[in-house]
Design a protein around this nucleic acid. Structure first.
Lengths: 367, 367
DNA sequence: AAAGAATATGTTACCGGTAGCAATTTGCTG
DNA sequence: CAGCAAATTGCTACCGGTAACATATTCTTT
C-alpha cells in the first residue's frame, strides 16, 4: 500500500503523517511533536521548555503559561526515552514477584497504575524465580538495563534484604509490600496482619468458642508469624489458650489447608472453630469438612484471610479478612514517584486489613 | 555516606563504581559498559559494534567474533533507551487488557515473558476501560508515547477492530488472543473453542445424556458463540437436539451461572447435564445444585471451560476444558519479536484446548 | 546612576546508540 | 598490474531530551 523506497539494509522509515487520507478519523493525530516544535511555537529555547516540563522554579510565570499553552494545544508529551537517556534513568517502575496468587498480582498492578496514571511512569512486570541461583543477578541486571526508577516487590521477594540492598545500590528505589517493616527498603507498605488476626480472634471469642485451631502459613513468609501470633495473642487476651496440637502448619495452598483440617477434625475433641491463615487454605478446610460430614457453620466456624474471590464462591460465604491490596499498591506507587525532597522518606505506611463477617462463623453448638 | 557535591539544582550523579568497598559482593559489577567501551576494547569503531549487535551481514566473521568476545567478557548490554531513541521505537511489548480474570492475565504475562526472555524486550502492562469514551485515545497515546514495538490484546479488547487499526497505523504490531480470527490484527493466536466445545458435547453424548443444557457467555464476547455453536453442533452430530429453553445466557460470572442453573434446574423435566461456558459459571452451577439438593455428579453432570484454579477446588473436581493460555501467550510474544522478513506474517496460530475429565461427569442415573 | 545579586533564558556539549555516506580494503576481471 | 565492483569499516550528524555554564535581564542597594 504505502510505496516504500527503502534502499538501505534495514529501515522502518515512518514519515510524519503527510496526507490526510482518512480525514474523519476520530483519533488523535499521530504526528509526533518534539520539544523543538514546542520551543519554536512558544518563541523560547528548548531548554526553557525543558525547565517547564521539569518544574524548574527559574521560569517566569508568564513564560511558563505561554509554554504550557503550546504544550496543551499541540498535545506534546516528552519522549521518555530521550528524557531517560539524558537523566540516565527511566520512567519505569518494575513489579517484581515470584508467585503470589494471581488476584494479588493483578490487584497490585491495577492499584499501582492508578497512582501512576498521567505521571509519565509506566509499569513493567518481572516475574522471577527466587530459588534460582541466578535470581539476584537476574533481577539486578533487569533493573540495571532498564534503569528502573523504582521497583515494587511483592512477598515473599519483598522480604529478601539481600536483593533489596543490591537494588538500592543501583540507585533504584525499592518499596516492599509486606506484613512487617522490612529493613533496607526505601519504603514499606505494611499490612498490619497482626492486628487483623487479633480481630479474628476476638470474633471467635466473642461468639463463645473455646476450642480454636489455627492453620498457619509456610515458614519462609513473614506474614506467617504475624498472623499466627496476632491471633494467638488475641485469644490469650480473652483468656483462651491454644493447645499446641491445634496449631498446624500449612503452606498457603488449598491442599495444605485440606490436609491440616483433616488432621484437626479427626481427633475426638475437635475444634469448633478454625482460623485459616489465608482463603486458599480455608477452602481446603471446607473441603475436608465436607468430606467428614461436618457442616459449616453449624458444627465448625471458619475464618480465612485475604478476601480473595474464592471467599464468595464458597458455601457458606467465608468470613475473612480483607486485605486492601489495591490501596497498598497505590500508596507504594505514589511514594516511588514522589520527589525525593519530601523527607517523609524511609517511612512505613501501615494499612490495616479488617474482618469481613459473612456466614462461615456462628456460636458453637452446645453438645 | 557517599560524598556528593551536587552544586546544581537537581542532580542524581551516579559515579561509575569507583572503589571496591564491598569486595566480597557476589553480585555483578554495576559499572555500566557502553558501546564506546566495547569499541575501544575490540579495536573497532562503535558503528561496527552496532552492526554486530544488530546482526548486520556486513561484518567480517573475524571482526564479529572479536566484538562478541568483548561483549561477553564485559557483560555489555546495549542501552534500550538510546537504541530506542535512534530507532524511533522501543523494545517494549504492551499487554493491553480490560478485565479478564486474574489467572488469565498472569498466565499471559508469564507466557509472554518466557518468550521474551533474553530478547531484550520487556513487558509493560496497561489495563484499560473499554467503555470509557477516551478508551481508544488512551491506548493510542500510551502506544505512541512509549513507541511500543508491539501489543498483545486480551479478549474482549482483542476483538476491537477499531482499536487494532489505530494501533497498526501507528506502526505497532498487534496480536490478538481470541477465539476466532480477528480481521486487521497483525497476527492472531486463536483458541479453537469450537472444537473443544464439540469435545465436551461428545463426552456428554457418549455417556448417554439426552437432556443437556448450556449456559453461555455474554453477547459481546466472540467466544460465546464459538463455544455455544461448537457444543450444539457437536450434540447435533450425535443426534441430540437442545431445546431453546435449555440454552440460557450467562455473563461469565459466578452469580450469572448460579442464576442460570437455578432456572434450568427448577423445571420438572430438568437437564441431566449442563455445559457451563466457563468455570466461574460452573462454580455457580455447583452452588445452585447444592442449594437445590441436587448432587453432582449423581443427579447432574457438569462441564466447565478454562480449567481455572477453581476447577480443582470444587467438589467433586470439575471436568473442564483446558485453555492453554501460557502457550498462546508464548506464541504471541514470539511472533511479535520475530523479524519482519519471515513472511509467514498475517497468519493465525491455532491452539486447541482439550477436555480434562475429572469427577463432575458420569452417565445419567435412570429414573 | 552604577554595581552586585538574583532571576531568566540561551548556548553548547553530551546521554548511548543508529543512519547515511565516505573511505578503505579486498577480490575479480582482463 | 591497472581498474572497478563488492565487501568492510569509520566519520559525522542526529534521535529528543538535559546539564553546565554563559548571557542577558531585573531588582536592590548605596
Amino acid at each position: 500500500m504505502t510505496k516504500k523506497t527503502a534502499k538501505s539494509k534495514d529501515t522502518a522509515s515512518r514519515t510524519t503523517s503527510t496526507t490526510g487520507k482518512d480525514e474523519a478519523s476520530p483519533i488523535a493525530v499521530p504526528a509526533t511533536v518534539t520539544i523543538n516544535d514546542v520551543a519554536r511555537l512558544a518563541g523560547v529555547s528548548k531548554k526553557t521548555v525543558s525547565r517547564v516540563i521539569n518544574n524548574s522554579p527559574f521560569v517566569m510565570e508568564e513564560t511558563r503559561n505561554q509554554v504550557n499553552a503550546v504544550i496543551k494545544q499541540t498535545g506534546y508529551s516528552p519522549n521518555p526515552q530521550a528524557r531517560g537517556l539524558a537523566f540516565r534513568k527511566s520512567f519505569l517502575i518494575g513489579l517484581i514477584y515470584d508467585n503470589p496468587n494471581a488476584e494479588f498480582i493483578v490487584n497490585v498492578q491495577d492499584g499501582a497504575l492508578e497512582a501512576l496514571r498521567d505521571s509519565g511512569f509506566e509499569l513493567i512486570v518481572h516475574p522471577c524465580d527466587r530459588r534460582s541461583p541466578k535470581f539476584t543477578a537476574d533481577v539486578t541486571q533487569f533493573v540495571e538495563r532498564q534503569k528502573l526508577h523504582g521497583a515494587i516487590l511483592l512477598p515473599p521477594v519483598s522480604e529478601n534484604t539481600v536483593l533489596i540492598k543490591a537494588l538500592r545500590d543501583q540507585g533504584c528505589k525499592v518499596i516492599s509490600l509486606a506484613s512487617v517493616k522490612i529493613e533496607g527498603a526505601t519504603y514499606c507498605a505494611v499490612s498490619s496482619d497482626r492486628e487483623a488476626s487479633a480481630e479474628a480472634a476476638a470474633h471467635f471469642a466473642t461468639m463463645g468458642h473455646k476450642r480454636i485451631a489455627v492453620i498457619t502459613g509456610p515458614a519462609n513468609h513473614r506474614s506467617t508469624n504475624e498472623r499466627l501470633e496476632g491471633f494467638v495473642d488475641g485469644l490469650n487476651r480473652r483468656g483462651i489458650t491454644v493447645p499446641p496440637e491445634f496449631i498446624v502448619r500449612g503452606g498457603y495452598t488449598f491442599e495444605s489447608g485440606m490436609q491440616a483440617a483433616e488432621m484437626l477434625l479427626s481427633v475426638r475433641n475437635r475444634p469448633t472453630a478454625i482460623f485459616a491463615c489465608n482463603d486458599e487454605m480455608a477452602a481446603g478446610v471446607y473441603q475436608a469438612a465436607y468430606r467428614l460430614g461436618i457442616t459449616i457453620p453449624d458444627k465448625l466456624s471458619v475464618i480465612g484471610f485475604d478476601d480473595s474471590p474464592i471467599a464468595l464462591r464458597l458455601w457458606p460465604p467465608l468470613t475473612t479478612i480483607r486485605f486492601p491490596v489495591k490501596l497498598m499498591a497505590r500508596l507504594a506507587a505514589t511514594r516511588l514517584i514522589r520527589p525525593d525532597g519530601s523527607e517523609q522518606d524511609q517511612e512505613v505506611a501501615f494499612v490495616v486489613p479488617h474482618l469481613v463477617i459473612r456466614n462461615s462463623t456462628q456460636p458453637p453448638v452446645l453438645a
